[in-house]
Structures are given as C-alpha cells and as structure tokens.
Amino acid sequence: MLQGTLIYGFINSVVLMLVALGFSVTFGISGVANFAYGALYVMAGYLSWLGLHSLGLPYWLAAPGAVAITAGVAAMIYWFILLRVRGLVVSEVIATFGMGLAILELFRYLGFIGFEYTLPPLIDASVMIGDTYVDAQRLCIVGAGILLAAFLWFFTHYTKTGLAFRGIAQDERTALTLGINADKVAAWSVAFGAGYAALAALVILPLGTIAVNEGYNVLVNALAVCIVGGLGSTVGIIVASFLIGFAQILTATYLETSWMMLVSLVAILAILVIKPSGLFGHQKQLEERI
C-alpha cells in the first residue's frame, strides 16, 4: 500500500512537472506567459490522433509531426499576434488567453468529444514493481520527464541557442547589444515551450482520452505548479510538482479521490500567505515589470 502510494505519487509528480515545464521555460526566457498553453497541449493530442486515424500515418511520423506543427503554431501565434503587443503585459496575457480559448472551443465545436479520441501507448505492457502493478506507459512518462528535464538543462547550458535563451532571460538589453535578436529568440522560446507541451501530451494522454476540458486542466495544473514553485525557476517547478504530486496522491489514497483538486488550491493559498513569489521565485516585488 505504502509502496504503491510512493510509486504513484512519484509518477503523478512527474506528470505535473512535465505539464509545467513548457510554460515555465517560455516565461523564464522571454517573459511571455503563454495562456494558450493548455490549448496547445490538447492540440498536439488531436493532431497526432488525426495523423494516425484520418491520414493513416504510422506513429513515428504522426507523433513528431504533431509536435512540430504545435511548435510551429505557437511560433506563429508569437510572430503574428504577440509581437504586435510585446511589452504590453495586459495585451499579451489577454491575447494568449483568447487564442487558447479560441483553439479549445473550436475543437469542442467541431465535435472532438468522445471515447474514441485516445492515443496509443508507447509500450502496451505492464510490470510489477515490488507488489505494485504499474503499466509501462507510466514508466515511459517518468522516463520522458527525466529526459526532458535533463535535456532542458543540457540545452540551456551547452548549446548556442540555449545560451542565447539564457542571455535574453538575464538581460534583454545587453543581449541585444551582443547581436541576439530578441524577437527571434522569444519566438523560439514560445515554440520550444509549446514543443514541450506537445511531448508531454504524447506521453500523458494515452492514459485517458483526449478531451477539450483537459486543456483547461493542464493550464490550471501548470499555473498551480508555477505559482507554488516560483515563476521561471526550473528547480522550483520540480520541487513544487513533487510537493503537490505526492500530496495529491496521499489525499486520494487516504481521504478521497475527488479531493485532489483541493490540494492544489490549498497549496496555492498557503504559498500566497507564506511566500507570495513562490518557493524558489526570485520575483522582485517592485523593480521588475513583467
């Protein structure tokens, strides 16, 4: 029982982390809070479903295709919409929020609801860990989570684009004088975050059906983790997802499954009282205007 709780708590935490990473990456680099994040996540799911079932593509083509298209759409949202209101926080927030809403509700309108909208698992098997039964897809999630987090770290520390990302994140003006095109980097960062969302969707969605409401859930979860962990801090994201992830599973096991949402709410309210900028947030209270 305890072992199972621990294992499922771990998996749940990695799911939360996967969901929040992309949002946090984009924000950390370019300061764009992509409220269309949940919509992009769901879109990746539907796109790969369409690729598999409507076009009859093989999985190895449909899945990367969906990731690429999702990232492309995100870049286009930046380039054609956000770029025009860059720096106006209100407009940025409202524009991404509106785009996300439009995408999600369009899917709903087009009738993408039902049990047939599922993605195939990567490996259809299950294993026993100790005396706990775990299906292979959940192990894939853990693997993907660790891989993606590690890749992010490697990417931002050792590649040229990644270093440009960090340069922009630290001081946009200085980066500009070093010949880094801030708009391009910001577009890349939005696409990059969306790509992470799409990858997360591909590994997580096989656990259930692809549903429009999942888009809102994902956004809520990502925001919850980011608020608790501190915006833009990768360490904060990881710590916060494990805190909330384990707390949720513990609640589900020992209290009631339906109370899981209460955990995030309580976590947010508690963190707001204790340290409003999040566990690892270095959000300055006055000086920065993001």
Partner: peptide, 20 residues
C-alpha cells in the same frame, strides 16, 4: 497577498481560483 507581486501573478491567480 498577490497585491505585493507585480506583473502577471495577479492574472495567473485570478484565472486559476474560479476554476479550482
């Protein structure tokens, strides 16, 4: 508590609370 923070924190928290 959110009032002490600038920028999009307020937007994030107000967005998430009703849904939760």
């Amino acid at each position: 508590p959110v009032l002490r923070l600038r920028g999009i924190y307020f937007a994030m928290v107000t967005m998430i609370l009703p849904l939760m």
